[in-house]
């Protein structure tokens, strides 16, 4: 829309953008002598200054956090903790061959269990529009009852060093573009896993197992 505004200059040759940054960042002028006397810079600066006052006002506006927010968060987390205690009997009984991603630093090593990554992937994928659910299809039927290592339903994660490969099986909503959903899933997994864990996602393989027809 406004792609060429960077090039906009005042009659004196000064870029408007420079003045904007000067006001917004509160930095001293690049050329104080020029600005002090220039008939173009002066008015432009005061206009920007006046407009920018509103941005500062917005920054000062007090935002009231919803009263119950903290309590709700803690409640969710307690549920999370309880659910996990109930739901992971396998590792609890038999020490599983834990697979970890590894970060080495001078002051020690960080390990991230693949299950943690799988959990993150699972949460993120469910939120992509067009995804109906995770898992589903023949593979689930075949695997029913067979305990699989570090997987969350429909998600498998392989870790190696600081890299991770993700396999996702999912059911797409009827009417959604499968290609678009798959791309969105891939992008979202790569971005979120990197943001939260620092691991590099080497690949995201997606299998669409089924299409869900009907409401919801």
């Amino acid at each position: 829309m406004s792609g060429n505004e960077q090039d906009e200059r005042l009659a004196c040759g000064v870029e408007i953008a420079t003045l904007v940054d000067q006001v917004a960042d509160g930095t001293p002028p690049a050329d104080p002598e020029h600005q002090a006397t220039c008939p173009h810079c002066g008015p432009a600066l005061s206009e920007i200054e006046e407009l920018w006052g509103r941005v500062r006002e917005l920054a000062r506006e007090e935002v009231v956090t919803p009263e119950q927010l903290a309590r709700r968060i803690i409640r969710r987390i307690r549920q999370d903790v309880t659910a996990r205690r109930l739901e992971v009997p396998l590792e609890a009984v038999v020490p599983r061959l834990l697979r970890h991603a590894l970060f080495h630093s001078e002051r020690g090593t960080t390990r991230i269990a693949d299950a943690v990554v799988a959990e993150i992937v699972s949460g993120v994928v469910r939120e992509v529009p067009g995804v109906h659910s995770l898992g589903g299809g023949l593979a689930d039927a075949l695997q029913a009852g067979i305990p699989v290592g570090a997987t969350t339903e429909g998600v498998e994660v392989e870790v190696g060093g600081e890299r991770v490969a993700v396999h996702v099986r999912l059911v797409v909503r009827h009417g959604a573009s499968i290609a678009r959903v798959a791309n969105a899933v891939r992008a979202s997994v790569i971005r979120n896993v990197a943001a939260v864990t620092g691991l590099e996602v080497a690949e995201v393989n997606i299998t669409v197992e089924d299409v869900h027809v009907g409401g919801g």
């Binding site: 927010l69 968060i73 969710r76 630093s105 991230i112 269990a113 943690v116 993150i120 939260v196 864990t197």
Partner: peptide, 15 residues
């Protein structure tokens, strides 16, 4: 809310 829940789950990875 989701951000904090996600942060909790990702705590083991916070370095």
């Amino acid at each position: 809310q989701e951000a904090f829940v996600q942060a909790w789950r990702a705590l083991p990875t916070f370095r």
